[in-house]
Design a protein around this nucleic acid. Structure first.
Lengths: 192, 192
DNA sequence: GGAATCCATTAACAATTGTAAAGAAATCAA
DNA sequence: TTGATTTCTTTACAATTGTTAATGGATTCC
């Protein structure tokens, strides 16, 4: 249940058995079906989720269009972070793309943990730094790469997702339309 | 000298006078001319900089083209963060766009600070979280907005930069060519 | 199992952006 | 100040993407 979470934490801090228990007890297990909405636009995100199984996506609703901001895979923390961190209404939705097994922790529990386990500040700092680096890398791909190159890089790392989720969700994540994604895929198949 | 830095830190943690001194002493003052390169591609970024005065830009060199990844303004921490945080060769350059007054802190000094002032973990966590939120917002603009809307938003917040730095630097930051920026500006002037 | 919905692909056309080149204006260095 | 460089804009054309609509296939839901 907590194996992968401890593995992630273990990369950055060392918890004693006692601390491990306090850490574990801050989380609650949640099993949710496919297409379940965890956070709606306008709501304040009260939890963050460690994904033990399944896929979540963060998306924007822009005049009826749904634009994917991020796809969270197994063994990552997922949330509408800006809402969670700033205690402000979310400008995004957080929804499952598959049936998911999650470990949820609330904002208040998180604050308690910072007090009980000062090491948490180190852990969360490291995770925040990693997320920042990740966001920066994606951003740089929008600056440097053409949509086709962006597709190629995505397919290399996340090729399995083309079989797991609808393509139009990936298209908006790459900043293009489904039509354009289809064209690019055709080009790439003919000239790999 | 440290006024703005303390103001930033004060938003997140409260330092005693003693702690303030330890904090201040970790930094060294640096004055650099315009177009001075702080970090080169391939080097490991050993410092981060708090900008008291001036502008810095982070940029990528892609086959001879220079693409702006970020423009750092006064009273922000600037660095090639992925290199600094991961102790890995930088994939970007960090360079001044104007004469700058900087407060620099090295990686080693930073590690010392974490030990001497555990509160630093909270402070840096908060700063990392803010940076992440900022990166996410910029990224969402690439997904949601057209280049013209991205230009309009940039001009609203950073209009002064059009008078301070060459436009082609802003163009690549917006993910477009200088030619396209010029066209968009013409469109926007006629239809504000 | 059948109806309804959703989805990926294709086509045709419009709009936008990129590319290359050239000239004018501004800036910089000697 | 002068000459050289950089920078911004404009033009013309090519390439790409967006938009809209239609089709057939797959999936979902009673």
């Amino acid at each position: 249940m907590f194996e992968k979470l401890h593995k992630l934490a273990g990369q950055f801090v060392h918890f004693t058995s006692k601390e491990k228990l306090i850490f574990e007890n801050a989380f609650t297990f949640k099993q949710i079906p496919k297409n379940y909405t965890l956070v709606r636009e306008g709501e304040i995100a009260d939890e963050i989720y460690f994904i033990n199984k399944g896929l979540l996506r963060l998306y924007y609703n822009k005049e009826g269009d749904y634009i994917t901001g991020y796809i969270f895979r197994e063994h990552l923390f997922a949330s509408s972070y800006d809402s969670f961190l700033q205690r402000a209404p979310s400008i995004q939705y957080l929804e499952s793309l598959e049936e998911c097994d999650l470990l949820a922790i609330t904002y208040d529990k998180m604050e308690e943990l910072y007090k009980e386990l000062p090491k948490m500040n180190i852990l969360v700092r490291k995770i925040a730094e990693q997320r920042f680096i990740n966001a920066q890398q994606i951003l740089s791909s929008f600056l440097i790469d053409s949509p086709e190159v962006r597709y190629r890089k995505f397919a290399e790392k996340n090729g399995d997702l083309f079989l797991r989720i609808p393509h139009h969700i990936i298209a908006s994540y790459l900043g293009i339309t489904p039509v354009s994604l289809s064209r690019i895929r055709k080009r790439v198949i003919n000239k790999p």
